[in-house]
Design a binder for these strands. Structure first.
Length: 809
DNA sequence: GGAGTTCGCATACC
DNA sequence: ACAGGTATGCGAACTCC
């Protein structure tokens, strides 16, 4: 029979020693179905020049590997003309019985004299399957298949595929999403009980609990105990039959907790289609996989892909939801948990429901991005939502190699990673040292996707790199690499790496236009996905875990970045402008009375000289810009400035205002002062703001909330060498029974006391200790405003002192 | 035991 | 371990006399 089918979830199993890929998705009628496709696992042997392929085939054909009851043989071979790192090679494609043994078979073949390399045994089977069979996630296919009794599952039909072909008219797949959230009596996984579980999806809003509260909303369903509640949870999820089950931090909390409590309660947590409990893959962070339902931990996707573009200071559900979907969830006072009144439970139920409701909204908002990454990178949504940018870049390459007949490079082994890391850094970009001051009428130019456009324009990659150069190669600028001055060379003929990147850059441009013409979630996601991929590609080549790692290409990219920034700066200076600042790919300079038209014409002239796809863009015109000195010095501070555009919109970079590890009092004051100065063009009015805050501080009139300092704990407490204030605060938290974990924001204030170290005077919220006026004055307020007022020749410390004298008398 | 310096650490910019 | 280098600036811990 034939039907339309969209694969959503992928996994594989063995049958008769062979690999089968199981695709779970929807058919044209919207029913969940399972399609099993066969897969012929294989890897490549790359032969040395002049090797006798037939002889090798003969020699290896008898090889087999025994693993328990499984015997893997060489099933067949093909002798092919392929490419490896851009060069023509003769290769043998070796088909084996089972992918899991491909590595062992490759090892068994060993380092025969005539074999140069063995490749692709280390590419994960699902990636290989998608790459070779072309059955890509979230695309529609026509499947010719027959029902397969043996593989039928409880709830869904299963078919054995005979032929899978892409549908020419693609429609967008819209998943059925279910969000969930649990509340527990203890944070530590499995230690406490699960008090309630909420589920929110289209047509479902439920809180399941075994706690009691009269007058709870009718979304609450009561059960006798935790076990009954868990059983019903499984039933509801499976009856709903979502494509995506999503939580926030659910890989690290909700799902493992559910599994742990299900085990204790002897409940079969048979979510999904196989009747088995979720499994957890090993790794830095365990990933909870449910067969036939894509379990999406939104936190992980946001953390890996979006966090650097978010304003949120933490990645808490509340803050992220506020920024992305403009929704603030209601709060619940967890302190109450120890001593709950019945009515408190009603509040807790409501809170729990809200968490799932917000998670669902967030999932709906983010789905277009997941979808686009799936389309571009061609990996299943489960992986797309967990992989980091380096892996996305790499998978995008892997899935496109066949267009170039390229055999994939291998993953670096442990020792190779060590060697790469041991090499240390290479020189990066150039930052112009500004002269402190307040400037009027500035222009900022910046290069669009500078690193990517340089990689494309100069073909910088592992495969095109040459130590010596020669005919058909061009040279890099001279640069220092491992304390030796050198030039390196790259082939003129575009390699697959820069070709793929140029496609990404082109598409980014195209989809940015599309987005500007038609602003919606989908067009934005598409444009954004290509931007992220383009931006991460430079970092990828310098990343020690990359298959296509190239220290030379990465270092050369930066040498080109420096060259073009310097060259452009020279042009700006020679044209009679005064450069004020520049960082990596941007240049800010004074308009010097020139008109916008003249400046745009000048920009055009620079562009006509730029090679390849490099492009300089107008960032903006600014009516004012403030640059300050480094603390305790007269030299200008880099990466620290304020600009105001001609609409009065202020852009603040690097200042304490934008740093989350400074207290609110400091940040708000500095932000107010900067705002006023940028608006007025002088410091007079803003001095009053400083005086007011000093008065409040000395008068002990400041809200404690504004004095809390927040610093992230970035490793386990025991691993710290230096006992900084936040480490001491974290220890204090532990002593008072609050569990602390890596990644947490530690919150404290500095109080009065005799201790020499700041850490000796660190207190947690709620401790009844007076705040240390002197500390907040000398270590918070003054450092943040001194160098700003210095620009105007005003001594902030004297002003503050004057204010405190007045107060004293 | 105090001053000066280095080091560890967090966070930002691009 | 899961893109890169450049930069500021705090506070602790060390060095030196």
């Amino acid at each position: 029979m034939e039907f339309e089918f969209v694969p959503v979830d992928y996994d594989y199993f063995d049958h008769g020693g062979r690999n089968y890929v199981r695709l779970i998705g929807r058919n044209g009628k919207g029913e969940k179905v399972c399609v099993v496709d066969s897969y012929e696992p294989n890897f490549y042997l790359i032969l040395k020049d002049g090797a006798d392929a037939d002889k090798i085939v003969k020699k290896i054909s008898k090889i087999s590997v025994e693993k328990g009851s499984r015997v893997t043989k060489i099933e067949k071979t093909e002798i092919l003309d392929k490419k490896y790192l851009g060069k023509d090679v003769k290769a043998i494609r070796v088909y084996v019985t089972n992918h899991k043994d491909a590595h062992d078979v490759a090892s068994e073949i060993g380092d025969m004299d005539e074999i140069e390399k063995r490749r692709e045994y280390d590419v994960p089977i699902i990636t290989k399957y998608i790459k070779e069979n072309g059955v890509e996630p979230l695309k529609w296919y026509t499947v010719d298949a027959e029902a397969e009794e043996e593989w039928m599952m409880d709830d869904i039909d299963c078919f054995r595929a005979k032929k899978i072909s892409l549908v020419s008219e693609q429609k967008k797949f819209v998943p059925k999403i279910l969000a969930y959230d649990i509340e527990t009596s203890e944070r530590e996984i499995g230690k406490g009980e699960i008090l309630m579980v909420s589920l929110v999806g289209e047509g479902i809003r439920k809180v399941l609990t075994w706690k009691k509260c009269k007058g709870a909303g009718d979304y609450v369903e009561f059960f006798d105990d935790e076990a009954d509640m868990l059983e019903k949870f499984v039933e509801y999820v499976n009856d709903y039959g979502p494509d995506v089950l999503t939580g926030y931090f659910s890989d690290g909390f909700d799902l493992p907790y559910l599994k742990a409590r299900a085990d204790v309660n002897k409940v079969n947590l048979s979510l999904g289609v196989t009747g088995r409990a979720p499994s957890f893959t090993r790794g830095r962070i365990p990933s909870g996989k449910i067969a036939g339902i894509v379990h999406v931990d939104l936190y992980r996707f946001i953390d890996a892909v979006f966090s650097q573009y978010l304003q949120s200071e933490t990645l808490s559900l509340n803050e992220v939801a506020k920024e992305l979907v403009g929704e603030e969830k209601e709060d619940f006072d967890f302190v109450k948990l120890g001593n709950m009144k019945e009515s408190d439970w009603c509040d807790f139920f409501s809170y729990n429901l809200q968490d799932s409701a917000v998670t669902l909204k967030l999932a709906e908002k983010i789905w277009p991005d997941v979808y686009e990454f799936c389309q571009i990178v061609k990996e299943p949504a489960f992986d797309i939502t967990r992989d980091r940018m380096a892996t996305h870049v790499e998978n995008h390459i892997l899935h496109n190699l066949d267009r170039f007949d390229e055999i994939a490079e291998k993953r670096p082994m442990h020792n190779e990673i060590g060697e790469r890391r041991a090499k240390g850094k290479f020189e990066g970009a150039f930052v112009f040292e500004p002269k402190p001051g307040l400037y009027n009428d500035l222009v900022m130019f910046d290069f669009t996707s500078m690193h990517a456009s340089i990689i494309v324009s100069f073909n910088l990659s592992k495969a095109t790199f040459s130590e010596d150069g020669g005919k058909g190669f061009h040279e890099s600028p001279e640069f220092d690499l491992d304390s030796r001055k050198r030039k390196v060379y790259f082939a003129d003929k575009p390699g697959f790496f820069s070709t793929l990147l140029s496609e990404v850059v082109d598409k980014r441009k195209k989809y940015k236009k599309e987005y500007n013409a038609d602003k919606n979630a989908m067009t934005k996601a598409r444009s954004n996905a290509y931007k992220l991929l383009a931006n991460a590609t430079f970092g990828y080549q310098g990343f020690f875990g990359a298959r296509y790692y190239s220290r030379e290409a990465a270092a050369a990219t930066l040498a080109f970045v420096r060259k073009y920034t310097h060259d452009t700066m020279d042009k700006v200076t020679n044209a009679g402008y005064t450069i004020i600042y520049g960082d990596t790919d941007s240049i800010a300079f004074l308009q010097n009375g020139k008109s916008k038209d003249e400046i745009m014409k000048f920009l055009g002239e620079i562009n006509s000289d730029l090679p390849g796809i490099m492009e300089l863009d107008l960032e903006d015109f600014y009516s004012r810009g403030l640059f300050v000195a480094k603390r305790g010095a007269t030299t200008g501070a880099k990466k620290k400035y304020a600009l105001v555009d001609q609409e009065g919109k202020i852009k603040i970079r690097g200042f304490e205002t934008v740093r989350r590890d400074w207290c609110r009092l400091t940040r708000n004051l500095q932000s107010d002062i900067l705002g006023k100065i940028m608006k007025d063009g002088d410091e007079k009015e803003s001095l009053k703001m400083l005086k007011d805050v000093v008065k409040k501080l000395k008068g002990r009139d400041v809200d404690m909330e504004d004095l809390m300092i927040r610093t992230q704990l970035r490793r386990p407490i025991s691993e710290y060498v230096a006992q900084g204030p936040h480490v001491i605060a974290a220890k204090k938290m532990e002593q008072s029974g609050i569990s602390v974990s890596t990644g947490m924001l530690i919150e404290y204030f500095v109080g009065e006391g005799s201790g020499k170290r700041v850490g000796d005077r660190v207190y947690l919220a709620g401790e009844s200790v007076k705040y240390d006026i002197d500390y907040y004055m000398k270590n918070q307020i003054l450092p943040a405003v001194e160098n700003i007022f210095d620009v105007f020749g005003v001594d902030a410390s004297a002003v503050a002192d004057g204010e405190s004298q007045k107060k004293l008398f």
